[in-house]
Design a protein around this nucleic acid. Structure first.
Lengths: 209, 209
DNA sequence: AAATATAGTTAGGAATCCTAACTATATTTG
DNA sequence: CAAATATAGTTAGGATTCCTAACTATATTT
């Protein structure tokens, strides 16, 4: 993180950036790019970025859990903000609210047929990272996945991310017996099988370090 | 990228996410977290996120090139948007505009003493990624750096990123003779030395693939 | 010298996202 | 069981972000 300045024999200031800060800078850069891309693509579909995010999320996570409050946590926004967004999506007939018998205060959010249609065309969002990622070799991919998962887990432990659904933080996860194991699916969680976003995830609130 | 759905012996739907899409999802997740973090931290310093980004950028890139237009490209915003942001920063006496003798239309942006002061306290932005990154082993770091640089370079080639300052896209960069080499600094660009953001960078507009 | 390009500003407006105050239902507790 | 507290969600009002379009002024090209 320290920035050393060295004068080279050619009288040019050499910045020596540590590899750690180069990595964090690269992650920031990629994140920024993806965000700009999302907003551009969303606009082409007549959606705002957050509207698109909600629709894509509902498409890939269809289930009872999807309430307004849950989405607010997912996106780190207030309920008021999400309420506005959902209201517009309901007016556009892309999302519908269904009563939840178990709790009269809350409603389950789901895509309407029109919403599903848009979602699947948004799902085609030509993610410009997929091609270059696919060109990495298998070893690089595994290392990359492992490193990124570690970083996300660390943000979760630092309480910066409040919601996620990765194996490390699931009540069904056994750390090492002798390998990480999923007690629900009864499978060894090799590097390949570890999930970032499991539909069966149930949070283990302990957040052991 | 294909999402296979398999019914497990336990009647639980197994999603098989490809490692490629897990990686892109993880990158999106990290990017989103960093953005939220920036906005939180900026607010604590009485700045908006974009104001903070501008100040941090000016701190680490003090030079003639820093015009309003350059920053607009850097952040993928319009000149109108940047003009507003800069106006406010000038009113707050954090940024100053200096005349540029070579071109009377444009002005060079630089931090005022007050701006530098804020910048260095913002520079302390406890980046929550630095600690977990530092705990990766050297081999993981090198692979991570290499992969992330490759991805950024690919976004540049796809014209999604319009400005950057990494070795691959610099006129002083020789790809392999037999190793990548910087013709300006006269050094071999080993993985360790490759830069993401070099102050001597001059764009090679060819964008060879 | 005229046409075109570039740097930057201004005005007006849509969208994002917040806080605070509120209603209604659930849950906990004395 | 009634009162206190917590949770789901809405509404109103406002600050900020960020855009397009129209504009001025200076540079560059033809």
């Amino acid at each position: 993180m320290v920035m050393k300045k060295i004068t080279s024999p050619f009288n040019i200031t050499l910045q020596h950036e540590s590899i750690d800060s180069q990595i964090t800078a690269a992650l920031e850069r990629l994140g920024e790019s993806l965000r700009i891309l999302l907003s551009t693509e969303a606009r082409e579909h007549g959606l705002s970025p957050i509207q698109a995010q909600v629709i894509i999320f509902l498409q890939s996570h269809s289930r009872e859990k999807n309430t307004l409050s849950y989405l607010a946590k997912e996106f780190s926004l207030t309920k008021a903000t999400l309420s506005d967004v959902i209201k517009i999506l309901v007016e556009k007939d892309l999302v519908q609210k269904k009563e939840r018998p178990s709790d009269a205060r809350s409603q389950v959010l789901a895509l309407t047929p029109a919403g599903k249609k848009i979602a699947s065309s948004c799902g085609q969002f030509a993610n410009p990272l997929l091609l270059p990622v696919s060109h990495l070799n298998q070893q690089q991919k595994l290392t990359l996945k492992h490193s990124l998962f570690t970083l996300i887990h660390s943000l979760y432990q630092q309480r910066i991310i409040t919601i996620q659904r990765m194996c490390y933080t699931c009540i069904h996860f056994s750390p090492a017996t002798p390998f990480p194991f999923c007690n629900l699916l009864k499978i060894d969680l090799t590097e390949e099988k570890l999930r970032l976003d499991c539909s069966e995830h149930e949070e283990n609130k302990e957040r052991k370090v």
